[in-house]
């Protein structure tokens, strides 16, 4: 089963014609960039198109191209002048993208209704469904503060809920982009507190205020000390949850009693994670961490006496 339609020359040629008609006089280099191919591929494509046209194939019927100056113009290609229809997966990619755009504007923005209509029309026409939900739980104020900070290159003062430590901290950050993993959005930033790049989950930022740029040190290039801890964990029950928590890829081959290695940056995370998995997994190594888990669980148990 083929996973994707190959970028065949035929498809490229069919897409090239309407593009050239709209962009008369476009430079060869620009075509190479727009189609993500090399300049010699572009020339090869144009030489092929040169021989195409309506049956008869006299100069009257052939597509008329000129590109010897390095700039391309096209005539006599009316039959192919319209861009091809989007395929269902291309439409799917656009519809999902539009849903993300719609959700990224605050509800009051005038664009939201327009995008909603567009998504609806595209979906009805192409039969490609929009996702039933793309959940985001970010307030309009936060959204607007973050977008403004990125667009105007300002810093933000945020209060952030750190999940593994279950703490709310205040930080000054220089945000530069938002990354979306399908549902959660992460604000990629330089954090003044950590003096390093950090990504913050947007829905865990409790508040954000624009501030003038602090006189920050340019991010240094010196390597950070590697603070990873190697942990050995034994699976004590056939549980999908353990596999998913530790992102073990070979799910089909993992069985009760198996021991695997995991590298973690944050011992606190591993302690809490092991506890939240009830008794489906236990820490084998290192011994300090193992006894930490026991100790912390005991302390929680003491709450009930």
């Amino acid at each position: 089963m083929s996973r994707q339609i190959p970028d065949s020359q035929v498809i490229r040629l069919l897409d090239l014609v309407p593009y050239l008609i709209l962009n008369q006089g476009v430079a060869l280099e620009q075509i190479a960039r727009d189609f993500q191919i090399t300049k010699s591929d572009v020339i090869d494509d144009l030489n092929t198109l040169w021989m195409c046209g309506l049956p008869g194939y006299t100069p009257l019927e052939l597509i008329d191209l000129s590109f010897d100056t390095g700039f391309v113009s096209i005539r006599n290609a009316e039959v192919l002048s319209n861009p091809r229809k989007l395929t269902s997966i291309e439409m799917g990619a656009i519809i999902i993208g539009l849903c993300i755009l719609r959700d990224s504007f605050s509800a009051v923005d005038s664009q939201v209704q327009g995008l909603e209509n567009l998504i609806d029309r595209l979906s009805k026409k192409s039969n490609v469904k929009a996702p039933a939900i793309l959940s985001t739980v970010v307030t309009a104020e936060l959204r607007s503060a973050v977008n403004t900070a990125i667009a105007t290159k300002k810093d933000l003062k945020i209060s952030y809920h750190s999940f593994s430590r279950d703490e709310v901290s205040s930080r000054e950050i220089t945000p530069f982009t938002i990354v979306h993993d399908g549902t959660f959005e992460y604000l990629e930033s330089f954090c003044q507190l950590a003096q390093d790049f950090r990504s913050f989950r947007l829905d865990r930022i409790l508040s954000a205020v624009l501030i003038e740029k602090t006189d920050s040190q340019a991010p240094g290039n010196e390597p950070k000390e590697d603070s990873r801890v190697d942990v050995q964990i034994r699976i004590t029950s056939n549980s999908r949850k353990v596999v998913e928590t530790f992102h073990l890829n070979n799910a089909g081959e993992i069985h009760q009693g198996d021991v695997f290695n995991s590298s973690v940056y944050n011992p606190e995370w591993i302690i809490r994670t092991i506890c939240s998995l009830k008794s489906w997994a236990e820490v084998v190594q290192p011994p300090e961490l193992r006894s930490q888990v026991g100790m912390r669980a005991q302390r929680a148990l003491d709450m009930y006496v």
């Binding site: 970028d7 897409d15 727009d34 861009p83 291309e90 656009i94």
Partner: peptide, 14 residues
Amino acid sequence: LSDVSQKALRKLSA
């Protein structure tokens, strides 16, 4: 879906 959307972009740019 970047290869897919690249092709979509190509069409839209025309």
